[in-house]
Nucleic acid binder design. Structure first.
Lengths: 167, 167
DNA sequence: GCTGAAATTCTGGAGTG
DNA sequence: CACTCCAGAATTTCAGC
């Protein structure tokens, strides 16, 4: 990677686990002044190395009790697919949306208030993709050991309806 | 959710998309003084609503060129499985590790320097789980529309070897 | 990338409803 | 009990080197 040195990489690694660390503390860790760290951060953000900052939130506190992954098997490809996916990625319910290789071509991780809301989301997805979609394989995420680089210390989440299947 | 009001939820929603927002600006958004926001933040962290803060980083800048998801099909269940999974979750390569319902029981999202490193990781996984593991289905993640609530504006990531399959 | 000073933010305690 | 206000401390920011 051009214009990136080991100190930049160390900054990225630290920031990934401690997103709200101060510039002062960050400078202490990589032996740089706070001002220099800030300059590097601006460079890294401009380069696109840092896409943004996020807090890892327990979805239940936002009354989103259902968390699911969906794997989309497509029948055809094309630029219009990406356009549709971008639209769904912008949705309030979607946490992550990826293009993948493998048996399926799209992976979505999303949260919903309940199963009904999830079903409606899946229906919209099917409707938007139309003939391009073969099927959706899905399942609920009922426990998280690590999420977005943040480890989860002994979460014990009880009831999960063990629902899953094809849509 | 007990002890949580709409302002708390709004704070969580904002923080999820702007992890490094200042308390002052956050207070401006929800009509609260910075001190009150700080008190609420401490409460939310203590309650476990906020698990941590993270920056969304382009893995290529950390020389991790291979990004994959793995779906683990287990033959048996048991507490020792969770112990093993926690060990792998702590790994430097793993971004997220979930327990899920559906055809497979575990989902891992991870990054590697190259395919070799990924293969070694999978081998360790198979070795640790032993007879408890049926198979690993996997694929590469070659494009991200949204990641950890951070939308990706028009990323164009080129070459991906279209490798995938079973391990 | 550093320094140093100014602006901003953060923090903890006292006070208010 | 949650919030605000306020002053001191820390951090951030920006200029110039």
């Amino acid at each position: 990677m051009p214009g990136i040195d080991e100190k930049d990489r160390e900054i990225l690694r630290i920031l990934r686990r401690e997103g709200r660390i101060t510039l002062t503390e960050l400078g202490r860790r990589v032996n740089l002044s706070p001002a220099s760290v800030k300059n590097r951060l601006e460079k890294l953000e401009k380069l696109g190395a840092i896409k943004g900052y996020s807090a890892v939130i327990d979805h239940a506190f936002l009354d989103r009790y259902v968390r699911v992954f969906m794997l989309l098997k497509l029948k055809v490809e094309g630029p219009e697919i990406d356009w549709i996916l971008a639209k769904f990625a912008a949705t309030e319910n979607v946490q992550s949306l990826y293009r993948t290789t493998g048996r399926t071509q799209v992976m979505i991780i999303a949260e919903f208030k309940d199963m009904e809301e999830m079903k409606r989301f899946a229906a919209r997805l099917k409707n938007s993709l139309g003939n391009a979609l073969d099927y959706i394989e899905w399942g609920t995420i009922y426990q998280s050991f690590k999420e977005c680089w943040i480890e989860n210390k002994a979460e014990r989440r009880g009831s999960h309806g063990h629902k899953a299947g094809h849509l």
